[in-house]
Design a protein around this nucleic acid. Sequence first.
DNA 1: TAATATCTATGAGCAAAATTAATTGATGCG
DNA 2: CGCATCAATTAATTTTGCTCATAGATATTA
Lengths: 303, 303
Amino acid sequence: MIERIHLRVVQAVEQHGSLTAAAKELCVTQSALSHTMRKLEDNLGTPIWLREGRSLRLTQAGRYLLNISNRVLPLLRHAEDKLKQIAQGERGTLRIGMECHPCYQWLLKVVSPFLDAWPDVDVDVKQKFQFGGVGALLDYEIDLLVTPDPFYKSGLCFSPVFDYEQVLVVAKHHVLAGRQYALAEDLRDQVLLTYPVATDRLDIYTQFLNPAAVVPKHHKTSEATEIMLQMVASDRGVAALPRWLAEEYAKKLPISVVRLGKDGIAKQIYLGTREGDAGIEYLKAFIDLARDYEHPAGVSDSQ
Amino acid sequence: MIERIHLRVVQAVEQHGSLTAAAKELCVTQSALSHTMRKLEDNLGTPIWLREGRSLRLTQAGRYLLNISNRVLPLLRHAEDKLKQIAQGERGTLRIGMECHPCYQWLLKVVSPFLDAWPDVDVDVKQKFQFGGVGALLDYEIDLLVTPDPFYKSGLCFSPVFDYEQVLVVAKHHVLAGRQYALAEDLRDQVLLTYPVATDRLDIYTQFLNPAAVVPKHHKTSEATEIMLQMVASDRGVAALPRWLAEEYAKKLPISVVRLGKDGIAKQIYLGTREGDAGIEYLKAFIDLARDYEHPAGVSDSQ
DNA sequence: TAATATCTATGAGCAAAATTAATTGATGCG
DNA sequence: CGCATCAATTAATTTTGCTCATAGATATTA
């Protein structure tokens, strides 16, 4: 009923003083505007202007409509700009899903240069998914998944960004501290600290404890890496973390790093995307940035 | 370019889950919406939805457009409601102009029941006019003029709302206090207090001092009635005010009232409107309320 | 697995709506 | 008074938007 053209006419008449001038502005004839506005006035049941001689003066209704015009039109114009930017891949929101708790620190270091390079792209990070990270990707909840477990499925595309070794972190003077490597049996009388996720998503279980049918004395969880490592430092438990992360914290806390098993546990971090999004420039750019990123400890290829 | 229909479709599809359902909601065929939205997508250069099988899933652009829809559509719907209320005279803004300083107190007492009776009508009061009250009326700066000086002119319409007597107010023990009436000469050695307006708009000059060619000793001005009367009470000057107003204040301040001249100065207050506004219900209602209002002192017809 | 139902996209034709051109009447202005 | 300019109006024309019919795709059901 009130259409965009009506708002534009009210605004243009106010700006240029007459219907004729407004018509020129809007690239139509004066007649067209006269007809159009007449129809709106009939529809509303009130004139927008008082016709005084050959000039128009806004009525109360007209003044109100002018207010609406001034509020709505900029919104629409701005929306069009933004949508066209989105169309050209210059603007958007990159929604990143994380399935790798300790990677958060790494992510922050990649996001920072990305935001500088793509000022019109926003970044959202989510960590909870009802149907797992892959589900979130397929459901368009997220656009990029950071995960150690690539799940090859048609429509999705995973690419590795860095390798690392998962290691055991213990207190500096812990009995395992000096060892060349730890065995599953060594954890039988230990308290194990992990992030609060299902055990089948924890490598320490799937690749280390379960194969040897070992269960640690206790299993406690912590959301925050910092807290977890302070617990480790005060010898209240041991934790399994990426080597680069553990070594980072080892500078500040009295902790030691021990290989898990004779050969260690090798891991990779992958970035997953939808194949359909292959054309999105800023997504490609993010993956490139992530792949190029050198770890501060230079551990990314050290294992 | 982005038209109202596009916003409505995006919203309806989100609400009802499919184009077909949205089409039913909007009372058109599915085909119409498909065509319409396709055109917008071509225009923007980006799809609004991803077509997955037979269902639609919003793209980033689509989500953005949905946001805009949720912001803009309620604005427009509300505007239509309001405009139709304005059309039916149920809603509006009554802009009142005052050319009679002391009437302000009276006005407040009329406005109060008016606002109760017309909850959807706002009231604005203005006191300064570049081209006088009549000019403001003709220029649509105001819709109603409160004035003691009706200025009959085609297109305008004045109706009296009450009569009153303009009297001299003096301190209780002033030399004129006991007099039956004052003469112009009595003011020759007095300080005269008035509102800060031109002398040709002050009755005390036009109807009293000027005919007798008398000029008071001093002429001081004050915006506020209360202040002016406190000055009078402390015998720093005399003032000319409506009798009803003076008697109101006489209850609280040590002041006396003296007739101006043998026959007194009779005044009326008029309400002026544009003839073209004769159909506005709430305007008529205001004038009726004003005319019916009885002065607290019952002075309106006492002179 | 075949049949059915349901969804979107598409093309052609048509009706309605918007626009224009031309004109009228009114009103400032020199 | 004559000229220029403005909004409204009428009729003609163009454009748009809508519907119908149908195809293609994909879930659902037997």
